[in-house]
Design a protein around this nucleic acid. Structure first.
Lengths: 108, 108
DNA sequence: ACTTACCGTAAGTTTTGGCTTACGCTAAGT
DNA sequence: ACTTAGCGTAAGCCAAAACTTACGGTAAGT
């Protein structure tokens, strides 16, 4: 259940900020931490969690570590959300019809 | 930015469990808390946060409060995710082409 | 009217988890 | 070889937040 870790990971504001900084393309850690209100080690810790959640990947590039968004993690989250959406909407529909049947007299 | 609150809300495991119990349709609080490892007041507090995030709605039904999933909250989350998906995939594509250009000699 | 079922909220406690500082490792440059 | 840049990890601290117990309030049933 990768979507579970994804939601837990994206639940934190700073972690979401880290994640969104990779939206435009891969970045080394120092570049991500640049201008952020937290220290670089803090960013590293967040990246670790994001990686465990399958949301980002990393590669070594000399002495620096370049992180990038892993489309698979996003895909898993999207899949969960879509499935949830369908089910919720279906039950919503069912209940709407149920209300139509029970209220015979008046619209309002 | 409703999606922010949505992600923060769904970040907690028990809150996600509460939310998922409403997937099949509306339920009163006691029914939601039924069989959960936490107390009923805890569930109430989680429902409050889910409501503030726009993920659930509630209506009074006699002495009980029936909670249900609010499609709008899910829609906001989906919108954010889709937008993010597009951007991330685009930058991913760009980088893939960049790699093709820099490696002239050999595949792999 | 009295009781009971159902629920929200307050207060207080405990636990989670995010952050910093300190340290160690590897790769590259001189 | 020595230095420097770039990161990851450990230890410890602290604030946020999740949970429990206790209480009060409303609606329905008797």
């Amino acid at each position: 259940m990768a979507y579970i870790d994804s939601l837990a990971a994206l639940g934190d504001p700073t972690r979401r900020a880290v994640f969104e900084r990779l939206r435009r393309g891969p970045k080394p850690v120092a570049a991500i931490a640049q201008g952020m209100p937290v220290s670089r080690p803090a960013v590293s810790q967040h990246l670790k969690i994001l990686k465990e959640a399958g949301l980002v990947g990393d590669r070594a590039e000399g002495t620096r570590r370049v992180y990038y968004i892993d489309p698979q993690g996003l895909a898993a989250l999207r899949a969960w959300l879509d499935r949830f959406w369908d089910e919720a909407l279906a039950s919503f529909q069912v209940e709407a019809e149920r209300n139509d049947n029970t209220q015979h007299k008046d619209s309002r």
